[in-house]
Design a protein around this nucleic acid. Sequence first.
RNA 1: GUGACUAUAGUUCAGUCGGUUAGAACGCCAGGUUGUGGCCCUGGAGGUCGAGGGUUCGAAUCCCUCUAGUCACCCCA
Length: 420
Amino acid sequence: MKFRTIKGTKDILPSDATAWQHVERTVRQVMHAFNYREIRTPLFEQTGLFARSIGELTDIVSKEMYTFPDRSGESVTLRPEGTAAVLRAYIQNNLGEQSPLVKVYYIGPMFRQERPQAGRLRQFHQFGAEALGSPSPSLDVEMMQLPLEVYRALGIDACALNINSVGCEKCRPAYKQLLQTELERIRQQLSEDSRARIANNPLRVLDSKDPADREATAHVPLIKDHLCDECRDHFAAVRRLLTAAGIPFTIDGRLVRGLDYYTKTAFEITSTALGSQDALMGGGRYDLLVEELGGKPTPGVGFAAGIERLLMVLQALKRPAGEEPVPTVFIAAMDGTAREWAFAACHALRRSGIPAEIDYLDRSLKAQLREANRQQVAFVLVVGENELTTGEARLKDMRSGTDHPVRLDALEQTIRSLHG
RNA sequence: GUGACUAUAGUUCAGUCGGUUAGAACGCCAGGUUGUGGCCCUGGAGGUCGAGGGUUCGAAUCCCUCUAGUCACCCCA
């Protein structure tokens, strides 16, 4: 085989596409119900946008971005996540000046150059939303409700919501220092990766999956117990609103997202139906990011959810994957003259909105019927010399096997009356 | 970036100890029925056994290298 897909990329074949459409349709319905409007940004941006927003020291920026110089020499990067570009668009187009609160959503591909495995691709797809302009904890909760409603609409219930607060610029520095001191004390018991993180990203040591790290840090102070008044109140409000909304959640004091820009609330949803990569969605508040990217100080909160992983859960749970579209009628033709008539008649039906199909391979009647059966069409019209001369034919109902008489000049009306 | 496993027909897989012409199921095509699908029966097409090298009288089978895929680590959707 000469050409193959690039490592970590996949074709979405026609047989898969119905499930994708089903998910995308559901996402749009839910987003609409919550009054979010779609935004589409370019798939690539200036490299600096992602480096600045996601954080130079994160794994995403330091080792996973698809970055290359374009022909003018400028460094461009295929977007590894959605938020940065949405905020860039928000700032660049002054969306904040047109309304104090902007609620947008997106669906599309993201790119990260990692080693592929179950639930992880180099080109993968996310849907997500951002709400810009309000510090209200109800929007934090809305960002959890949005994906949860999508999952519920698709028939997924078994997923776990974990939340945490990672503080703000007022309380995080002091906590960070406290944590660093504690971690230095137990340095010897930590894994190599975790030791390296003490200096630049100590919070991340806490959500290490290494059992030894877990044990060593079992009694280390957590940031949720060292929040400033504002962050503590905010976190309490989030929990109250979740409880009032009847949404079960778990507080995970070690939850830290892999992007540096989060403040206050961080959250994720995991599913046991997935393999090792079990995060279905993640998100959080980012009250400093708009300003960091050159806009006016603007609070914001958002989430991003993986579509491939969602589809994996749907399949594991054997949930309905959407209906395959099939033609309503197949016109089988007996000879050359009938074929030409069939091609014209087929076009007329298609134009009137009735999905129709004919044979293009000069196949026998038997083969045409077999093809119609394979495609699960509702009706077959057989036309030959007799039908064309009399103008009368029989429309066969493929499910029941029964025939209905039909005048060729009243084909559309007859099909409509039979098909509904 | 690290590790483990895998690679045979369009697909899912058998293939014994290294031994004749590499098989099955499903799918595809045709016929059984000269103008009626499905079920059934019969027949047919379809293979660089991932690639290259080595051992051997003989390699899908054993060895080496490469490539690709899968899963896991790290991290994340």
